[in-house]
Design a protein around this nucleic acid. Structure first.
Lengths: 120, 120
DNA sequence: GTGTTGCTTCGATGTCTGTCGATACAGCAC
DNA sequence: GTGCTGTATCGACAGACATCGAAGCAACAC
């Protein structure tokens, strides 16, 4: 279930802050895909619930109750987050667990930061 | 030209990192609007060009040449960025200048950060 | 095997969005 | 005033997206 979508090669060398230098065209396309995954309230709450859940991962069954949409819709949003490289998942027996990918989140964060030192 | 759109009240008290606690429903809607503004490659590059431009602001005329889309499309994207609270603008004589709003960018950045200290 | 539960995928549908060309507006030069 | 330039807004349209219900698949219980 992991790694079934393509990698995001551009992100391996990008991530100077936006304010430091103009974004290249290729990088902007990849980054826009990641931000698009964050551009829906349901997905944002899903990511937040997953990332803040005890143990750093959450079963889909833990997430469903918090939303007023159908289970298939949640599954769709989880897939969008996964294809954007923001979360990954694994089936364990009957249940599927999701966890956030900190590297991706921190890269987006450092891109938006306008102050202080930068890791990349 | 400034402040012609509504404020984003939720952001004044939000912005603990996503990984720290689940996002409230209201906050997620406001934040999703901001991320949506970042979810287009043209807008991402526009923001980057504006933020990294010498003097911290850029005239629209400085931006147009870098894109393969019509001027009306650029104007549309600049409006989306402005209504999301990520940039502001001011007319000076014939030209309109845009600048990034660091507070908004840093809030999004701290929301995504999974490590280190947090300002809020 | 059958049945049940948890989750994903599929297909359809209404809404949103990026883009364009045309038009309107603002400021300057004259 | 007229004309010109820079930018914003309007209206239309194709493509993208969020949502749903139905169907499919995987793991378990029996």
């Amino acid at each position: 279930m992991s790694n079934q979508t393509q990698r995001l090669p551009v992100l391996d060398q990008c991530c100077l802050p936006l304010v430091r230098e103009p974004l290249a065209e290729l990088a902007s396309a990849e980054l826009a895909r990641m931000f698009k995954a964050l551009s829906d309230p349901v997905r944002l709450r899903l990511l937040s619930m997953i990332a803040s859940y005890g143990g750093g991962e959450a079963c889909v069954c833990d997430l469903l109750g918090a939303f007023d949409v159908q289970q298939s819709t949640i599954s769709h949003h989880l897939r969008v987050l996964r294809e954007a490289g923001l979360v990954d998942c694994q089936r364990r027996g009957t249940w599927v667990y999701y966890w956030a990918l900190p590297t991706a989140l921190n890269r987006l964060a450092s891109l938006l930061t306008t102050e202080g030192p930068v890791s990349a």
